[in-house]
Computed example of a mutant assay.
Amino acid sequence: MSLTNKAIARIRELIQSGELEPGSKLPPEQELAAELGLGRNLLREAVQALVAMRVLEVRRGSGTYVTSLEPKELLHGVGGAVELLRGDTLLEVIEVRRLFEPVATALAATRISQQQLASVKEHLDAMRAAADDVELLNRHDAAFHREVIAATGNETLSAVLEGIAGRTVRARVWRGLVDDRAAGRTLAEHEAIYNALAAGDAFLAQSAAMMHVNTTETWLRAHL
Rank of each mutant, 00 (worst) to 15 (best):
L85R: 07
E92R: 14
H223R: 13
R98G: 02
V178T: 09
A118Q: 15
A104F: 06
S62W: 01
H140E: 12
R139F: 00
P22H: 05
T110E: 15
S113I: 05
V58L: 04
S62C: 06
L136S: 09
A109H: 09
L84A: 11
L20P: 07
Q116I: 02
H123Y: 15
E35T: 15
L124K: 10
L3A: 02
A49D: 12
R111V: 08
G39S: 09
S2L: 03
L75Y: 00
E217L: 02
E83C: 08
V55C: 04
M127T: 05
V51Q: 00
L14H: 11
A130V: 02
L43F: 12
E70W: 03
R175K: 09
M210L: 15
H190I: 10
A9D: 11
R185T: 04
G153F: 09
I149L: 02
R175S: 01
A142Q: 10
A142P: 00
I15P: 06
H212R: 05
E29S: 11
L99Y: 02
G63S: 12
P22W: 02
N5D: 09
L36W: 04
D132K: 02
L43P: 13
L187E: 05
Q30L: 15
D132T: 10
G23L: 03
H76C: 05
Q114D: 14
N41W: 09
E45R: 14
F203I: 12
G39M: 07
A109T: 03
A52Y: 06
R175V: 01
K121Y: 11
E57Y: 12
Q48G: 09
G80T: 08
V178Y: 00
A126L: 14
V55D: 10
H212L: 11
G61T: 06
G18M: 10
L75A: 01
T218M: 05
E95L: 07
Y65N: 01
A165V: 11
L157C: 08
A33C: 09
D201K: 08
I15N: 08
D133P: 06
F144M: 04
L124H: 13
L14V: 04
P71L: 09
E19N: 13
V213T: 02
L90G: 09
N195L: 15
E95C: 03
K25F: 13
L224K: 01
G18D: 07
A106H: 11
Y194T: 12
S207H: 13
L50V: 03
